[in-house]
Design a protein around this nucleic acid. Structure first.
Length: 235
DNA sequence: AAACCGAACAACCGCGTCCGA
DNA sequence: CTCGGACGCGGTTGTTCGGTT
């Protein structure tokens, strides 16, 4: 009730945006940029408050938005980022170019929470639900047990496993910095360097991925816990 | 064909933070 | 140091749409 504090002075429109309003906002911003949001509605000829204009632009009208349904890779990334960041939607969105925090938040609340519950995972804590009776599939059998890791929330190989089909190679240098390269040549996680500690020295080289499988380190060994390591990142 | 219901999406609201006067 | 405006974030509500009865 009451609306935004910035809307008190005038009768301003609320609710869904019309195509005409969208066109005015896009035209103004593409010509002049948004500058000070509070002055945008007046300059663009809109009966809206600046806050509403900002939201509409960021979540819907920006030209770099991807839109459309989330891919499996994006879903996996959201799950892992949510596990480590919690409900920091803007930070999660920063890891998914073309997606907005609002879009991810909505998708999480309306869809992904349910999916995780069906897989027997608590969407808040990311730990197995009590009893685990509703779906015998449970968490993916491929996922390594959490207790194998000193810092499971940031484990790069755990990320890598879900994303494996899209990974061309991972590199680990002498300082245990870990980076994943995707098949399209880009660096996953916006080029952020991940720390991978506890890896035996002879593995501290470059791991080539072939069809989603690392060639010199078998996932099975890793998953079974015969290779022990801990990992953390510099997010 | 109409009513109902749930999922998905769009937008609003309140609050915290930042920054300049 | 304090105050107020602008901005950004996360939670919540409202609306639309498609499927089912």
């Amino acid at each position: 009730m009451g609306g935004h504090s910035c809307c008190h002075k005038q009768k301003l429109r609320k609710g869904l945006w019309s195509p005409d309003e969208d066109a005015k906002l896009v035209d103004h911003i593409t010509r002049h940029g948004h500058g000070c949001w509070s002055s945008v509605p007046k300059l663009a000829g809109l009966q809206r408050c600046g806050k509403s204009c900002r939201l509409r632009w960021i979540n819907y009208l920006r030209p770099d938005l991807k839109r459309g349904t989330f891919s499996q890779k994006e879903e996996d990334l959201i799950v892992h980022l949510h596990e480590s960041l919690g409900n920091k939607w803007s930070q999660i969105a920063a890891g998914l170019p073309g997606r907005t925090d609002n879009e991810i938040k909505n998708y999480w609340n309306s869809c992904m929470k349910k999916k995780l519950k069906q897989r027997g995972i608590d969407p808040t804590t990311h730990s197995p639900l009590d009893g685990g009776s509703e779906d015998k599939q449970g968490p993916s059998p491929l996922l390594p047990a959490k207790e194998h890791f000193a810092e499971p929330l940031h484990d790069p190989l755990w990320f890598a496993q879900d994303l494996a089909p899209s990974i061309s190679h991972a590199s680990v240098n002498a300082g245990s910095e870990f980076e994943l390269q995707s098949n399209n040549g880009g660096s996953l996680f916006d080029g952020r360097i991940l720390q991978w500690t506890g890896l035996s020295p002879d593995k501290a080289a470059q791991i080539q991925f072939n069809g989603g499988e690392p060639e010199d380190l078998k996932w099975s060994e890793y998953i079974n816990g015969s290779i022990s390591m801990s990992a953390s990142s510099t997010f």
